[in-house]
């Protein structure tokens, strides 16, 4: 599976942001995009769980995951491993 493509798709759906379809890995998210708030974070985490069937635990959730498109893609990769 192309994790970067999956990450872009999840971002686009949950942020309702067309540009997300073309985000590079270095695009900053949390603190940089006004659309990125706690509700977005929960819906993105839910989407990752629903798409991959993985389980994300409370203690895995940190701001670092949401720093950039790349960090989020890496997190999804880890969950898929």
């Amino acid at each position: 599976m192309d994790t970067l493509a999956l990450t872009r798709r999840i971002l686009k759906t949950n942020l309702q942001l067309e540009e997300a379809a073309h985000f590079d890995r270095d695009v900053a998210l949390l603190g940089a995009l006004p659309e990125f708030n706690s509700l977005t974070i929960t819906s993105i985490l839910a989407a990752i769980e629903d798409e991959t069937g993985c389980e994300i635990h409370d203690d895995e959730i940190s701001g670092e995951i949401f720093e950039s498109v790349g960090s989020l893609a890496d997190f999804i990769d880890e969950k898929l491993a």
Binding site: M1, A5, R9, I10, K12, T13, A21, D50, E51, T52, G53
Partner: peptide, 14 residues
């Protein structure tokens, strides 16, 4: 099942 842009089949879990 909801499919995003450029997605032609649902995720693995589905």
């Amino acid at each position: 099942e909801h499919l995003g842009e450029g997605q032609d089949e649902p995720g693995l879990a589905v």
